[in-house]
Design a protein around this nucleic acid. Sequence first.
RNA 1: CGGGGUGUAGCGUAGCCCGGUAUCGCGCCACAUUUGGGAUGUGGAGGUCGUAGGUUCGAAUCCUGCCACCCCGACCA
Length: 490
Amino acid sequence: MSKGITSRSEDYSQWYNDLVIKADLAENSAVRGCMVIKPYGYAIWERMQAILDKRFKETGHSNAYFPLFIPKSFFSKEASHVEGFAKECAVVTHYRLKDDGTGNIIVDEDAKLEEELIVRPTSETIIWNTYRGWIESYRDLPILVNQWANVVRWEMRTRLFLRTAEFLWQEGHTAHATSEEAIAETEQMINVYAEFAENTLAVPVIRGRKTESERFAGALDTYTIEALMQDGKALQAGTSHFLGQNFAKAFDVKFTSKEGKQEHVWATSWGVSTRLMGALIMAHSDDQGLVLPPKLAPIQVVIVPIFKSEEEKANIDAFVNSLNAELKAQDVSIKYDDRDTQRPGFKFAEWELKGVPLRVAIGARDMQNGTVELARRDTQTKETVAQEGLGSHIVALLDEIQDNIFQKALNFRDSHITEVNSYEEFKDVLENKGGFVSCHWDGTPETEKRVKEETKATTRCIPLDFEEEDGVCIFTGKPSKKRVLFAKSY
RNA sequence: CGGGGUGUAGCGUAGCCCGGUAUCGCGCCACAUUUGGGAUGUGGAGGUCGUAGGUUCGAAUCCUGCCACCCCGACCA
């Protein structure tokens, strides 16, 4: 059994890998750096998809799908973009295999592609190439499209959920007539992400803007939500980019304005990925396994019967059926674990490992007393409550659990944002406490680079809610107008 | 891609230095007894040691290549 993060913070990754495997969420596949997401893990991703997708639709977006393969030449069109991705792409060069005569399957050299295809690391290029044909007039704008897809980035170093070679995500790509509108879209979507992270995942996040050196390749401005994991490292959980007219210019996407002028379109892109599952796991899990917030949990309530005879079982079944009906009517998802192949204690431990928020145990004794045993995953506490009114009690309790999980993570996060005014303090906090460090910085990439080399910490963001204040850069002593957050990150 | 480490049954491991076809635990199967926190007993099945070569009478063990994973670095959602 894994020991948990508090006792093994230095060995966090191993613990994390143990946990996700033991909680049956995912495993490494036979393909380098890729993962198999197992059914229970995928169910969690599906919940994320469903909730996010609903928000995208509510904010006026539609889903579409673009090709997996992107002609290599598309990458030559936006210089800074290719610079950011060229190093880590999978490239398709041939389209046929053949038998070499001895039973070995080899690549048929005669089937070489004239132009290589890139497996998308992100879809800006192929989408903007397509948008050129969709946009002629201001009447065609805005285009508000999202894509659910997989992408591939040939990372040198991979990590389950956090940085796999292939990952699942959604990428929104919008086109607008004005800069203002595009910026508003960028901000709207980072807020959608932040609300999702906090309200659904119960992971508190800091909304902010990336510094120039941390920006997305090809973006003019990158908004981010930054979460804090229990080991004191920060995790970028979602980004929303204002792309200006860079892609419109690169792919020649123009429209005729109301005034009859030809203008380049303004763009945004935004995305979250299966990395969110990593954030979820690392933000809430404890030594007993996963802790899922009720709003996200594929199974919110598990019911475990405890019985010796068939009569007792039938008795419990009848009660569970009525409880089931009551809870389903209130959109509570329930699992009645009446397997007779496992004992109750085993089931308790297993569902705890999987993070099910609430467990109801009912035995013959309960049936006599008109009670059940309720166990909360988040606090690990148990109480015996009356069967009467159980449905509404559970609904209320699920809300309470959701709040509690968030509050716990928020307290941890807030107690790990440390304001410092000297480089000595800065290093001390990073080394001994972890978390975010708020300090003045002269705004130059050179200083960021130096700090990273010396401390491994990078700027995570300039929080949107930070006020301007006069100060001096703690590294160079140059004047600064605003604080920024540094942290070690994944 | 550079440095370090690992790869033995579904999982976790011993054996490797000092070559002689593999240890233990969990899990799995059968039966019995059990069932309010990961049951117990008895019996049983399952591996040829990541992979391809080499050395040797003989390789899990020694040597080389390759692959994968983990850690550190560079890179990144």
